[in-house]
Design a protein around this nucleic acid. Structure first.
Lengths: 186, 186
DNA sequence: TTAATCATGTAACACGTTACATGATTGC
DNA sequence: GCAATCATGTAACGTGTTACATGATTAA
């Protein structure tokens, strides 16, 4: 149950609307957790019924009305409990789940060139993400100024550090894979 | 839809039971795709209704009876189509989904030592997997002998190569993270 | 005698994905 | 005039998780 706790985590900083939360997810948390808009609205509803959140309609003119969610004391308690769980599920933290790798695994049934096209596309995307990481670090700094919380920023940096190592590693793998596949053609 | 295609991929080598397929997943495919036993039985049922598979009950004495699944011509067609899809979903191939990272992201709300415990556990598991990779390569070689298909083995190696880079990278990240967190205590 | 291996699943629920629906305002 | 931004969701379906149920044989 991480989406709920991710939402709690953001709402612990300050009250937000579903729309804002969706953007927060896409802007910053999407690095390690992806969620659809429709899913966010659904979860917010469930969490309000659970008593973890409260909402209030804000009437706007010249813009659609909006529903502002705030975390409750119960919600904060739930967040704290989740954060201090002793079962950290390290196993899933290190598990790869990739339909791309599955396809590659079975690509002996196809021509080598098809695998090469796949791996080259992978390399390109990995390169793009390597370049994106510098923006990510900037985003963290500016977010940090808004939220004005130095300690929080440190932990965001820590997760970004994973990206700093992960994406170049992916490029390196692709490079080796391309050489390997080229070798199969001879 | 990768679980279905993973099952098709294995059944394309040779007929197997749900029990065998479960073990194959746990032994070799679990590196990039994890599936529960109950899920495998459910999917096999659906796939048989789709006409991708056929099954036959094998009566055994001194062991429970078993249901042997074989891929049909329709199933092979579906597998080939899936393998040659032009939309390779590279995006999800590079996306990390990790409740561990999410927790770390929000760990500014806790004491530094709790984060350190988490990261140290992560490091240990990553180290274990680095060591495990040599076994994985052996497993690939021996599986290759059974299936007796050199070309297939090459592609298995390619996915294993990802692990060869990924797990040491994870250890490296953990080492840096530990230094970083230790620094926060002063 | 206890755990592992062999072998099958169902049921209920949680979570993820895709398509659809609405509609005003603002900037190019 | 057209796309983007703001803002809310529902419905249906697909996939993943957890708990439960059964029961014989074999090795430590």
């Amino acid at each position: 149950m991480s989406l709920k706790h991710g939402l709690l985590g953001i709402l612990n900083y300050l009250p937000r609307t579903g729309y804002d939360l969706d953007k927060s997810f896409k802007d910053s948390l999407s690095f390690f957790w992806q969620a659809n808009t429709s899913q966010i609205y659904r979860e917010l509803n469930i969490m309000e019924k659970e008593g973890w959140l409260e909402s209030e309609w804000i009437i706007q003119h010249e813009k659609p009305n909006k529903r502002l969610y705030s975390i409750t004391e119960e919600g904060r308690k739930e967040l704290r409990e989740w954060l201090s769980l002793s079962t950290h599920d390290i196993d899933s933290a290190l598990s790869v789940k990739s339909s791309f790798m599955m396809r590659l695994f079975f690509s002996g049934e196809l021509e080598v060139d098809k695998a090469l096209v796949m791996v080259r596309a992978f390399r390109e995307e990995a390169m793009a993400r390597v370049e994106y990481m510098s923006h990510a670090h900037e985003a963290i700094s500016s977010y940090g100024e808004i939220v004005n919380h130095d300690n929080r920023m440190k932990y965001w940096q820590l997760t970004a550090m994973f990206g700093d190592l992960y994406y170049p590693m992916a490029v390196e793998w692709a490079d080796r894979a391309i050489v390997f596949l080229e070798g199969l053609k001879e």
